[in-house]
Nucleic acid binder design. Structure first.
Length: 304
DNA sequence: AATTCTTCCAACCGCAGTTGA
DNA sequence: CTCAACTGCGGTTGGAAGAAT
C-alpha cells in the first residue's frame, strides 16, 4: 500500500476481518468488556493490533449498530449537523443513535457532499441568470455559522460571503495575553475582517492605536466564546450561556471586557442553530446577536 | 463475454490529547 | 517533569462490487 503498517509487529493479520476473528473479538468483549485495546488481541487470541480491534468493534461488531440505509430524516439531520459542526463526524454520529462516525463520514463523502455541491452549483447558475451582470457584488448582511470547532464549535464570521478562517496559532498567541476566566472554557473563535475604509471598532479597555495595515487585516478582531462549566461535552445544551469577548489585533491581541456586555446566545438561537436548513444563519433573526451583526454591517462601529 | 471505469466503504494511517509510571 | 503507551479522531486508501463500454 506504500505506507508503513500501523503495527510493525510481524505476523499480525491485516485487511478484511474473517468471521472467526469477529467471533473471537465479540466473545472476548462480551466477557471482559471494552477497553484495554493494547493487550486485548493477545488475550483474545487475535493476530491483530489493538487499534484494528477497536475499530472493528466500534464500527461493525457493536450490538447497538443500526444496519441499513440512511433514512431521509437521518440524512437531513446529518446535513444540518454538518453545517453546525463541520467534519466533526464523531459528534454528528453521537446525535444519530446506532450510526458510526465512519459510516456518516463515508456517507457524506460518497453521497451528501456531491449532492450538496450539485445543489450549490445549481443555485449559483440560477443566481447568475437572475443577476446577469452585476456592476459590483451586492453588499450583504453579515452571517454567522459554525464549522469545525474546539469542543463545541468553531465559529466563523462570514461577511460578504468571504470565508476567513482564523489561524489557530495566531489565535492561541492572542489568547495567551489574556487567559480565559477560570469559570469558563473557550469553545469557539471567530475572525472577522472589518471594512478597512472605515474606522476600526472601538474596543473597550484599549485604544485602536495602530492603523498600520500591512496586509489589510490589521483591523481584524478575534472573538472569544466562553462557556460556563456546566456545558455539555457536545457544547449544545448550554449555548445560551455563551458569552462573547473580543480583541483587536491592532491592539496587540488584548481581549477586552465583554462589549457589548452580556451578549448571549439565547435558547431561540440554539433552536435556530440546530434546526436551520438554509446555507447561512440570518443574524437579523437572531436578536441576541444583532449588536454584533450591526457592528459588522456598519464596517466596524458599534451601535449606540 | 471481456475489459475498463466508477462507486462505495471497511480498514488503515498519522496526529493529537490523555494517562500513568 | 518526562516520556511512552493508550485512546480517539479525521483523512485517506485500496479492493470488491457494480456499471458502462
Amino acid at each position: 500500500m506504500g505506507r508503513s503498517p500501523c503495527c510493525a509487529k510481524e505476523g499480525l493479520n491485516r485487511g478484511a476481518w474473517t468471521a472467526q476473528e469477529d467471533k473471537l473479538l465479540t466473545d472476548y468483549i462480551k466477557l471482559h468488556g471494552e477497553g484495554k485495546w493494547g493487550n486485548l488481541p493477545k488475550r483474545a487470541g487475535l493476530k491483530r493490533c489493538g487499534k484494528s480491534c477497536r475499530l472493528r468493534w466500534l464500527n461493525y461488531l457493536r450490538p447497538d449498530i443500526k444496519r441499513g440505509n440512511i433514512s431521509p430524516d437521518e440524512e437531513d439531520l446529518i446535513i444540518r449537523l454538518h453545517r453546525l459542526l463541520g467534519n466533526r463526524w464523531s459528534l454528528i454520529a453521537g446525535r444519530l443513535p446506532g450510526r458510526t462516525d465512519n459510516e456518516i463520514k463515508n456517507y457524506w463523502n460518497t453521497n451528501l457532499g456531491k449532492k450538496l455541491l450539485k445543489e450549490h452549483n445549481k443555485t449559483l447558475i440560477q443566481n447568475k441568470l437572475a443577476f446577469p451582470s452585476p456592476s459590483s457584488p451586492p453588499k450583504m448582511a453579515s452571517h454567522l455559522f459554525l464549522t469545525k470547532a474546539f469542543d463545541c464549535s468553531k465559529v466563523v464570521a462570514y461577511p460578504h460571503l468571504q470565508l476567513h478562517e482564523i489561524e489557530r496559532d495566531t489565535y492561541k498567541s492572542s489568547v495567551k495575553t489574556r487567559p480565559p476566566p477560570a469559570s469558563s472554557v473557550i469553545v469557539g473563535e471567530a475572525h472577522v475582517p472589518c471594512n478597512p475604509d472605515k474606522e476600526a471598532p472601538s474596543v473597550a479597555g484599549g485604544e485602536n492605536n495602530n492603523n498600520n495595515n500591512d496586509n489589510g487585516d490589521s483591523k481584524d478582531f478575534f472573538m472569544e466564546f466562553a462557556m460556563g462549566n456546566g456545558a455539555d461535552a457536545d457544547g449544545f445544551t448550554n449555548f445560551e450561556s455563551c458569552e462573547f469577548n473580543y480583541c483587536n489585533k491592532s491592539n496587540g491581541g488584548e481581549f477586552s471586557t465583554p462589549s457589548p456586555p452580556g451578549l448571549l446566545i439565547s435558547e431561540e438561537m440554539l433552536q435556530d442553530l440546530t434546526m436551520r436548513t438554509t446555507d447561512f444563519f440570518q443574524p437579523r433573526e437572531l436578536s441576541c446577536l444583532s449588536p454584533f451583526t450591526s457592528f459588522l454591517d456598519s464596517g466596524g462601529v458599534w451601535p449606540d
